[in-house]
């Protein structure tokens, strides 16, 4: 080590240090240390929907070993998890539960849409019970393409999530702001799935102009 009161030096704090501590001090920003703790302890929710869940389990299992990223602690309870891996087709019957689970997760929380179905409906998009992408209801941080994505692809997605976490700052992330975060309204199982946020649109279309209620039957 150089002398303590020398010109600014990345390896020196600029303060008087007892000699025995000089090798043991690192200087960093609060953001960095905060994000480092967060990125290596992302606990995913143990929550599988469809085929992708099998690849998610394989990612956590023998060959691919998710533990390398500190993410092997799968929590069955949303209260203890940081990351929701939406692994599979999101159906209309399931979306109220997914939104409810998302609301129950404590901040900070992240969502990873795994596979084609969760990202945009995938091969089943045209189905009458299929939600065309989970992002129609809850915010998604990382999309992983594939049908199903291989474990390598999921790992890549998780590394992208780590990069995203790295770029956060505790002064600007939404969960440290003064305003309360509104819960996402839970969809209702009606004649079709009803998003409470759509109430005005639905009313204007089904009651005002009955003829416009079946837009899908039109062809261009």
């Amino acid at each position: 080590m150089t002398e303590i009161n020398a010109s600014p030096n990345m390896n020196s704090s600029g303060y008087e240090m007892p000699p025995e501590m000089r090798q043991n001090i690192a200087i960093t920003t609060l953001d960095k240390i905060w994000n480092m703790g967060r990125r290596y302890s992302v606990w995913p929710m143990m929550f599988g929907l469809a085929c992708c869940a099998i690849e998610m389990i394989c990612t956590a299992a023998s060959r691919y070993d998710l533990a390398r990223f500190g993410m092997e602690v799968m929590r069955p309870s949303p209260r203890q998890s940081d990351l929701m891996i939406v692994s599979g087709t999101v159906t209309k019957k399931m979306i109220p539960q997914i939104v409810r689970l998302y609301n129950q997760m404590p901040e900070p929380k992240y969502v990873l849409a795994m596979g084609a179905c969760a990202s945009g409906g995938g091969p089943f998009k045209e189905g009458y019970n299929v939600v065309s992408g989970v992002d129609k209801y809850i915010p998604v941080d990382v999309y992983v393409p594939g049908c199903p994505p291989t474990p390598q692809a999921l790992l890549h997605g998780l590394m992208k999530l780590q990069e995203k976490i790295d770029s956060e700052s505790i002064t600007s992330v939404r969960w440290y702001q003064k305003e309360a975060i509104e819960a996402i309204p839970v969809p209702i199982l009606g004649p079709d799935i009803i998003d409470p946020r759509d109430f005005p649109t639905i009313k204007s279309l089904t009651q005002g102009k009955p003829a416009a209620a079946e837009p899908a039957a039109e062809t261009a």
Binding site: K136, I202, T206, P215
Partner: peptide, 20 residues
């Protein structure tokens, strides 16, 4: 893109979501 809800949804004529 032609669906007014922007989602995979359709409702019968005269449907009132609030009384459901």
């Amino acid at each position: 893109d032609q669906n007014p809800y922007g989602k995979n949804n359709q409702y019968p004529d005269g449907f009132d979501p609030e009384s459901w």
